Simulated assay, not measured.
Amino acid sequence: MDYFIIQEDRSAGYTGYVDASHKWGLPGVYCPLCQDSWSGGANVYPSVDLTPITALADFETSRAEPIEEYERMCELVRPLLPPGAQLEPGAGFGPLEGKAQGSFGQLFMYFDEVLLIQREALNKLQAEGLQGIKGCPTALRFRQRNSPELLELELLPVGRVHPKCLPPTPQPPCPRCGRLMHPLPDVLILDASTLPEHLDLFRLGDYCNVNICTGRFADACQRLGLDGVVFQPVEVAATQP
């Protein structure tokens, strides 16, 4: 199976612009063990509705909290998550809310991690029988006529990079807050044993700002003429026993 990194096609000539955030989110965290304050925010679940939570206002303001408060809030959210979801400081939930304008391709990258798709393109991909193609409504406001209907594709965190593209003696994640201690490798290699067989579209579990698709997904997009993104081949290697 071939795999690809999905990236914005900067040569496509579209003028699309989005200024938005998800309706709810977990706070950033201060970790007393690694003594770092951080927020990831790449793990987002637009299908998750937090309205059953009584203290909903706690999830409406971006801020950093002590790790004990962050962990308490995680436990409130966890029962509402889709299978396979994982949480991190700054994780977002609910529809993407904000402003949008300009012209958009059939697919659109908002920052590196959020993948938006026009309704017609979503219908075409789902008709191809691809697995894990879930489009969620957004709440984007356009000030223009003939504005597109943009949905957000919900990507689950699955798969990891192969150890051979990491430093020879990589520092393990913080055991308390989970923060990775080394940056994204310049050249990615995926660990074959961690890749899902049931998804054609996902994000990496250890570097969740990297969106990955199978060759089936890339081929379908190219055959259907769905533009706005490019597909960069990524190496896959087996883990040595």
Results as ranks from 00 to 15, higher is better:
138 T>Q: 10
130 L>R: 05
207 Y>S: 10
112 D>P: 01
62 S>T: 12
208 C>W: 11
140 L>S: 01
27 P>C: 09
100 A>M: 09
112 D>C: 04
33 L>F: 15
233 P>Y: 08
106 Q>N: 13
6 I>P: 06
18 V>Y: 06
76 L>P: 00
201 L>S: 02
19 D>E: 14
199 L>Q: 15
160 R>Q: 14
181 M>F: 05
13 G>L: 15
23 K>P: 00
213 C>F: 12
102 G>P: 05
160 R>G: 03
85 A>Q: 06
82 P>G: 14
215 G>P: 02
202 F>Q: 01
215 G>T: 01
176 R>Y: 09
49 D>K: 08
124 K>V: 13
200 D>M: 08
177 C>E: 08
118 Q>D: 11
150 L>Y: 09
202 F>D: 01
179 R>M: 12
22 H>C: 00
102 G>V: 12
211 N>C: 06
203 R>F: 04
54 T>N: 10
102 G>A: 07
184 L>N: 09
62 S>R: 15
189 I>T: 13
47 S>M: 11
41 G>I: 11
176 R>V: 15
112 D>T: 13
82 P>M: 12
146 N>A: 13
84 G>L: 15
87 L>Q: 08
129 G>R: 04
89 P>Q: 06
198 H>Y: 07
132 G>K: 02
171 Q>V: 14
142 F>L: 09
11 S>A: 12
108 F>L: 01
43 N>D: 04
28 G>C: 05
103 S>P: 02
12 A>L: 04
181 M>V: 00
191 D>Q: 11
108 F>W: 14
196 P>D: 13
171 Q>F: 03
28 G>I: 01
120 E>M: 11
189 I>D: 10
65 E>P: 06
139 A>Q: 08
122 L>N: 06
239 T>R: 14
187 V>H: 15
225 G>F: 07
82 P>T: 14
215 G>N: 03
198 H>T: 12
159 G>Q: 04
234 V>A: 02
212 I>M: 10
8 E>C: 12
212 I>W: 06
38 W>P: 09
176 R>E: 15
216 R>C: 00
24 W>R: 13
183 P>V: 02
234 V>Q: 04
78 R>E: 14
161 V>D: 00
151 L>Q: 06
40 G>R: 06
83 P>I: 01
192 A>K: 14
188 L>T: 12
127 A>R: 07
175 P>S: 06
87 L>N: 10
152 E>K: 03
120 E>N: 15
52 P>W: 13
222 Q>L: 12
102 G>T: 05
214 T>Y: 05
101 Q>W: 05
92 G>V: 03
85 A>L: 09
219 D>L: 09
121 A>E: 06
131 Q>S: 08
219 D>G: 00
68 E>G: 02
153 L>V: 11
226 L>M: 05
52 P>R: 12
119 R>L: 14
49 D>T: 10
3 Y>D: 08
73 M>I: 09
91 A>N: 11
62 S>K: 13
64 A>R: 04
238 A>Y: 09
43 N>W: 00
31 C>D: 07
122 L>Y: 10
79 P>E: 03
190 L>H: 03
